[in-house]
Each structure stands twice: as C-alpha cells, then as structure tokens.
Design a protein around this nucleic acid. Sequence first.
DNA 1: CTTCTAACA
DNA 2: TGTTAGCA
Length: 106
Amino acid sequence: MTDSGGGRVPAPRAGQALYAISVAAKLTGTGQQNIRLYETRGLITPLRTSGGTRQYSDSDIGVLLRIGELLDQGLNLAGVAKVLELEAANAKLHRALKRAQSRPRQ
DNA sequence: CTTCTAACA
DNA sequence: TGTTAGCA
C-alpha cells in the first residue's frame, strides 16, 4: 500500500473507452469537484493525458459507482479507500487462486 | 479542462 | 466530514 495506484494498470487497451471528468460525473451522478477530491484522497487514480486532463476508463467508472454506494452505506472517504484497497488485494488473490485451480497438477 | 479558496449541511 | 460554488 505504499502506492496509490502507483502499480498502475497497464491495461488501457486500444479501443478502451475513456471519459473526461464531465462525462464521468454524469455517469456516476457525482460532481466533478467531488471526483477530483476522491483522487486527492487516494480513492481513485485516473489516467492523465499529456495536457493533464483526467481520463476515466470503464473500470474507473465502476470504481466511482462503488464509491457512491459505499458512501451511501455510511462509510467515509477513509473507509471507502480501505474497502477499495481490500477489494484490489482480494481480486489479486482470487486471480492467483483461480489460476492455481484451473491448472492441471502433474 | 486544471488548481485553489471559501462556505454550507 | 463531505459537498458545492466561484475564481484564476
């Protein structure tokens, strides 16, 4: 956890839909200033264009959506950050487990 | 589009 | 504390 997305997702493949903060705000129903604060708080780390414009991928939109749900459930930004952190770690473990299970042992 | 500051609930 | 508004 020494990185706030520093590991960085190497996966914005070609054809991946990217959204500006205005459309991301509309999609998630959250204000633009809010989304920027989430980034400051380490809840999300969108891609940045050369000019410094934030680019939100589909997965980022999903994260923003989940942030709204968690906040609605009574969590504060720190709690949401923790949940997202745990979810990321869980997904990583789940991936490793699934790979080990589907792998024929010899 | 970005950052910052200020104010409100 | 989180959200919103205005300015540069």
